[in-house]
Write a protein that binds this DNA or RNA. Structure first.
Lengths: 193, 193, 193, 193
DNA sequence: TATGAATGAGGGTTCATTCAT
DNA sequence: CATGAATGAACCCTCATTCAT
């Protein structure tokens, strides 16, 4: 109920454009990119960025929230899939892939530059809940070791993304494979390929 | 002919003091600490820091180089120890512990702020060689899976440090345990408990 | 030929609403309030404010002009009252009260932010004339010292307002009493108590 | 004990130059002058200003403190002079003259732009004490009316300065004369000149 | 005509690096 | 050589004013 009429078309366009550019730039260069640079690449003035997002943190938060919400939705849809183990590890790989493509998200998850947990608390908690569901189901099915909780799994996903990005294209997915193997209970390791 | 005479005693002392303080500060606060602050804590002028290290990156590189060299030495000494598997995993844990205690090193390994591989290429390669020896021996002994190389192991050690630091004191070592389990070949997992 | 037809009713309403809100806001918060804020409180767009008043100064000037015109009218009506001395000092107190209630007007009178005399010259001169009449009559009646002119009296009224506002509720009216005493000719001071 | 050695000559020179320029500029143009402008006029970089004064407020405070301290000293020296009434009114005129020459000081005293009482609390209180001494002595001698305190007198001095500056060179001192007359007890007015 | 989004020139402040003392 | 003051390029953010819708 904050607005009495629909937002203007150009405002929506600019907002979307800023979000899109900011997402690309943050993903490619990390969080230290100046707002002025984002504005320049979006073809708008710096003030326009600030009209839509009152602070740099807010802009970044908006991007991360959208990202996390999409990820949570994916987690929710997987939670009802057939095989709990498969669902859990599919989600793990999906989230790592997201993180690889996004340097800024990685920095945020690693706690460098912004405190996402503080800024995007609601989305972060929802993600944690969805993840906890996936995890618990997989653990009950005997597909995941019992001595981990959602916090550790989240950290591992963020860490895998960072490591994979760091290693570049050589041996893609190797880090994630190893980590997932480590998450399986003893005796349930994937047979060597 | 970079120097006509041996360096003065006070210059050596200052250089050592700056290195020591910078190490502590970078470890505790990360790479964003201003040079002025390091100089102040070292009890020298900012110019003195720049006399010994032409840029901030160079200072940080020097610290990392010293760190890496020490780590390499440790790797070398373990390489001749009795059990290759034990040696490898001991070294893994040792390096993670180093990384946990050092925020700046973690930032660097995560790629935020400096590109260590570019700045400390020689030491980095030497570490890689020492690590390769440990790794190969452990793999030959059947203690580590065959589909990883030293680059992946190095990334995993850095990642474990970052993740453990991020999680704080809850479940200490859990991430490292999982990762090490993932590094073992199928069938060689640690028994539960 | 500034307008080919009479202004529309809604335009008049908006103009009046903007003036009213701007007056309140300037009075309460001073001149540094952004135009956007005034527009928001008036329930119009910023562009509407600029349609009616080409600059921020113009808006403020319009307010001050309206204020001054009202004050001039009061001066005119007092000029025909019975006792010239009473009329003069009544008006003095009235104008100080106006100024106390209006932070923006005080800032303008103190020369901080806008040059009212330049922007509202006509109204200012009319006020000066009305004030001169009151003053001259009071001086002829022996109620006010002879060595002051309307400019000094106007400055004193603005100054009293600023000082009273600055002192807040402690000793209300003391400054004005002192100043009015100073304006009386020697021997005509108010008796103590 | 904050410094182990004497400050460098150039630093002292620059600091003094910045203070001098800032004083002139604040006095002439008021508090809204950008720091960059002050730096430019002083022939230094903006960073140099910030080395000596951590914020713009701090710079302005330093200037006001120096000013107020000088004024307090003057008040103290007058406090032991022969005639209490003469001493009080001499000081009044002196402080008004100071304020006339200084637009920034006037703005500060009028509360526009900075809260001097908060930033320069110690100096402000010392001035208030010195002023209270002068005032009490003059009141005991029957030279000043009894229903005013130091706060009112300080406000009157600031107000006189602002008003005199506003009126410019016409009728110089008239405002101050009137105000001082108002401060005398009934029956003690200066005879008409 | 009304709207409110877009603009862009500054403003205060920080900090890596240089250079006078 | 050591010192630490000076520099100046950025950075984040605000707001008077313009202009597309």
């Amino acid at each position: 109920m904050t607005s009495g009429r629909p937002p203007r078309a150009d405002a929506l366009r600019n907002r979307a454009r800023v979000l899109e550019v900011a997402h690309e730039v943050f993903a490619a260069e990390g969080l230290s990119v100046p707002i002025d640079e984002i504005a320049r690449r979006a073809g708008v003035g710096a003030g326009t960025v600030y009209r839509h997002f009152p602070t740099k943190d807010a802009l970044f938060t908006a991007i991360v929230v959208a990202r996390i919400d999409r990820i949570s939705a994916r987690a929710r849809s997987l939670a009802t899939a057939g095989d709990p183990g498969q669902a859990f590890f599919d989600f793990f790989a999906y989230m790592v892939a997201e993180g690889i493509a996004n340097k800024g998200l990685g920095e945020a998850l690693a706690g460098a530059g912004v405190d996402v947990e503080a800024l995007a608390a609601a989305s972060d908690q929802e993600l944690q809940r969805a993840l906890a569901d996936l995890l618990t189901r997989a653990q009950r099915a005997g597909a995941v070791r019992d001595d981990v909780g959602p916090r550790e799994v989240k950290a591992l996903m963020g860490g895998c993304a960072t490591m994979e990005r760091q290693l570049g294209a050589s041996a893609p997915g190797r880090i994630t494979t190893i980590t997932c193997d480590g998450l399986r209970p003893p005796g349930a390791r994937t047979p060597p390929g």
